[in-house]
Amino acid sequence: MEIIKTQSLIKDYLLGKVKVRALAGIELSIINGEFVAIMGPSGSGKSTLMHIIGCLDSPSAGEYYLDGDLVSKLPKSALAGIRNRKIGFVFQSFNLLPHLNVLKNVELPLMYSGLSARKRGEKASQILDSVGLSDRLKHKPNELSGGQRQRVAIARAIVNDPSILLADEPTGNLDSGAGGDILEIFNKLHKAGNTVIMVTHDRAVAERADRIIEIRDGMIHNGDLAN
């Protein structure tokens, strides 16, 4: 079953009076449980596509179905709930809140979904255990290595059991060893049945996925199921 389906997805940005077309008609479908890598040159629209898939942004035109629901027409207020329940985001620059410790960072999505404080703590430490950080719960992000920080970010992304895990260059700031650990976790999640979509510049990293989608100038160049 398709968990993601887009039709003629277009995203325009206005830079002053000039229209910049970041996405120029994306036709994409991703099946539940797939591990997909997205590649493409800088500025080709990879992050823009990830933001729309992750419901952080809406397309200028075209349709986007998530889990069979047409979400491209939903108001922004409805997107927050979808982000919280269905999407887990991992960023290149980790994006942990610096003044919260590891456990609190991972608890955040659970707080916004209204879980009680006790259940939050239980669930968050359980997830942190699964990424090998059970001995770092009370550490602040700046007391961790890059690889550890990214593992915290992954824990935060998956703590709410999302339908899709989105990762925008998750290994971009890491050396190959730490990057390998991250990919190992993705692999495990994929094996467990999760859908993982990962942007990367690194062909070797991309090879770990089931499928590689290449984007150029806001369009899918090859790798879509249709091809």
């Binding site: 952080l56 927050a80 809140l97 916004y112």
Partner: peptide, 16 residues
């Protein structure tokens, strides 16, 4: 700003 962005990305509503 970034903190707000992160909170929104992981599911905070505008009202939150």
């Amino acid at each position: 700003t970034r903190e707000i962005g992160v909170r929104l990305a992981i599911g905070a509503r505008r009202t939150d």
